[in-house]
Each structure stands twice: as structure tokens, then as C-alpha cells.
Amino acid sequence: MVIASILKTKGNSVISLGPEGTVLDAARLLAEHRIGAALVRSLDGALLGILSERDIVRGMAAHGPGTTGLPATQFMTRDLVTVQPQTLVTEALSLMTQRRVRHLPVLDAGGGLIGMVSIGDLVKARIEAAEQETEELKHYVVSAG
């Protein structure tokens, strides 16, 4: 199974924040959409980074109560870990484990953003694939016996 199949089901909508957004803006955006990370994009749509709940917590630990008014760009992760639509789900899961990230922007061959997947999306897809394989094996055993 590849990332494109997950996006086909999930859709390619991506929640993002502009570079002028504050940490409080980002926290509200994450809470409103019940997500764990949002991309930070320039006014022309270029990817600048990703801001996760983890980034916000680390920023608050380092800067204290005044953190919420600071720019989200100050705490975002700039070194993006990305995948392409043809990336295998198993490869993406391995990448997430190695790089210790829970969200992967999906870029086309030209580097354009076409979606984002989370660890939850990938695990769900793996479970569904395993359940489907189990059902197919059960059907095979019953029909062969």
C-alpha cells in the first residue's frame, strides 16, 4: 500500500498557519481541527516548516508563560521530513520511527504539497489491510476445505 491510497480515502486537505501566526493562534488551530500539527506556509504557499503540539510544549518549557504571544515560526521544525505519493506505508512508518516525527507532508515530484499523513493514518491503513488479508485467508481456507 502506498501513501496515495491513504490520501485518496482521507483527502488532501492540509491545515496550515501563516508566518505571522502566534503560538496561541497555532494552538487554537490545532484544537479547533483536533489535529496534532499544522504546516507553516508563506503567503505564496511555500512550506516554511511544521508546528506540532510537541513543539509548542517544548517552547513553553523553554520560554514560560509568555510563549503564546511569540511567533509560531520561532518554534516550528524547519527541517521537514516528507514523503511522496508512491512511498510505501511501511517505508513512511519506518521514516517516522527513525526521525521521531508523527506527521509527514506529502509532496509531488515537483515539490508541491498534495497532502499530509499522520502516524494515526498510517496505522489505521495497516490495520485495515491486515483485516482484509485475514478475511481473504479465511475465505480461501473455507472454500478450499
Rank of each mutant, 00 (worst) to 15 (best):
I35Q: 06
E131T: 06
S42Y: 09
T77R: 03
G45E: 10
I56D: 00
I56A: 03
G59A: 03
A144G: 01
L39D: 07
E53D: 11
I127V: 15
E136H: 11
K124F: 02
A27F: 02
S13A: 15
Y140P: 00
L93A: 10
V117Q: 04
E32A: 14
Q132Y: 08
A62L: 10
D55Y: 07
L29V: 12
L104D: 05
G21V: 04
V106G: 07
T9F: 12
S16K: 06
V57N: 02
L7G: 09
T87D: 14
H139G: 00
D79A: 14
G18S: 14
I3A: 02
G36C: 07
V89Y: 02
T90Y: 12
R126E: 12
M76W: 08
V23N: 05
R34A: 09
L95G: 04
T87W: 06
G111L: 13
H33L: 01
T87R: 06
S143K: 13
R99H: 12
A4V: 13
G69H: 11
A144T: 15
N12Q: 13
G120Q: 10
I50M: 01
N12A: 09
T82K: 01
E20W: 12
E133F: 01
M116Q: 08
L7F: 10
G59P: 02
V89M: 05
L107M: 09
T87P: 00
M116S: 03
Y140S: 12
L47G: 08
L137I: 14
L43D: 13
G45I: 08
A92S: 06
R102W: 10
T77N: 00
K8L: 15
D25T: 05
E136Y: 10
P105A: 11
A62Q: 12
P71R: 07
L51A: 05
A46F: 13
G110F: 13
I6S: 07
R100S: 11
V23K: 00
K10M: 06
L24E: 14
R99K: 15
A61N: 11
S52F: 05
P105M: 11
A109V: 15
L122I: 07
G69R: 14
G59Q: 04
V141I: 15
T77E: 04
A37T: 04
L39G: 03
L80C: 04
G36K: 04
K124V: 08
V142P: 01
H139N: 13
D108E: 13
K124H: 10
E136N: 12
L80T: 02
V83P: 05
G21F: 10
A31E: 08
E91T: 14
G36W: 03
S143Y: 13
Q132I: 10
S52Y: 03
G36P: 05
T134E: 14
S143T: 15
S94D: 15
L70A: 09
V142F: 08
V89G: 05
E135P: 03
E32R: 14
D55C: 02
G66K: 08
V106K: 00
E128Y: 03
D44H: 09
A125P: 04
M96S: 01
R58P: 01
D44V: 12
V117T: 09
F75L: 13
R126G: 04
V117H: 05
V40Y: 01
A26N: 00
